[in-house]
Amino acid sequence: MSTPMSTHAVHPVHSSEPLLSVRDLRVTFGRRGEQPFKAVDGISFDVRPGQTVGLVGESGCGKSVTSLAIMGLLPTRGNTVEGSAVFDGEDLLRLSPGQMRDRRGREIAMIFQDPLSSLNPVVQIGRQVTEVMERHQGLSRKEAMPKAAELLERVGIPDPKARLVNYPHQLSGGMRQRALIAMALACKPRLLIADEPTTALDVTIQAQILALLKELVVETGTALVMITHDLGVVAGLCDEVNVLYGGRIVERGDRHTLFSRPRHPYTVGLLNSIPRLDAPRGEALSPIPGSVADNLPWDSACAFAPRCPNALDVCVQQTPEWEGDDVVGLRCFNPMGVSR
């Protein structure tokens, strides 16, 4: 697959067919007899080839569960998944475990938050990188090893040949995440889901890893779903941004509009809690008051109402419906920039 640089512009070409189309995804935890918990409560979004889409929200809003559901990696018991996730014409949620296994690593790959615990501590890096090529490309380990070295070189690991025989604990945190990126991209998947890939890293390393990811998705034309709680990460990387709250998408837009004219009070709150270099000295950050523990159920209210500065009476009586489409939209009775 080669996507020319020009299609990966700030405003992606919306006319192309979506590569991944998630519709009304719902994940409910809890066995029979228990109070069910809706971790993901009707999420829909599209990812087009070569596009980078952000899923942003606080801890516990359902970002990881969304990605695991799409990947077919949720535990086999104790949850129900509803809705659809159509990838390349097939609904991933209806595939058999074996069919899904054939697609993971080859068509869709994922990288995780903690690079140390995501690597097998007792297997050498080289073998861990070749494993995915042996699995999907039918290569022998001998054939795959030189390719593994090339891959490690490509993701910026110095002296890659020597690293092949290292164990994970012998690498630095940044190197480990680079190795995991190499593994995820080894078979040139068309979609990469990155679940907070920089959260566990030092700030300087974070920037390097983000730059690498950006470079690689442009180079290979891989579509990227970037999951983060950090709007700063989104600002540098994503074409389209989805803001999640309590298992639902509350605002969507391209990153420029979202950053310059945020409309949902929660998006505004997130933006105000980013440290800014140009902020006047001494001005305190304003984190969003309260916590997700205060959430109301979406069924009969706006979940964000107890923490919302704009809340109206209607917000605790009715569910705000999604107004918009798969490119831009909002779920709010009293958005910012509208007279109160």
Binding site: M71, L73, R101, D102, R103, R104, G105, R106, A109, M110, F112, D114, S117, S118, L119, N120, P121, E131, V132, R135, H136, L180, M183, A184
Partner: peptide
């Protein structure tokens, strides 16, 4: 986590 990561690669 590392088993989840391995599963994510198929």
């Amino acid at each position: 986590d590392h088993v989840l990561a391995a599963r994510s690669l198929g």
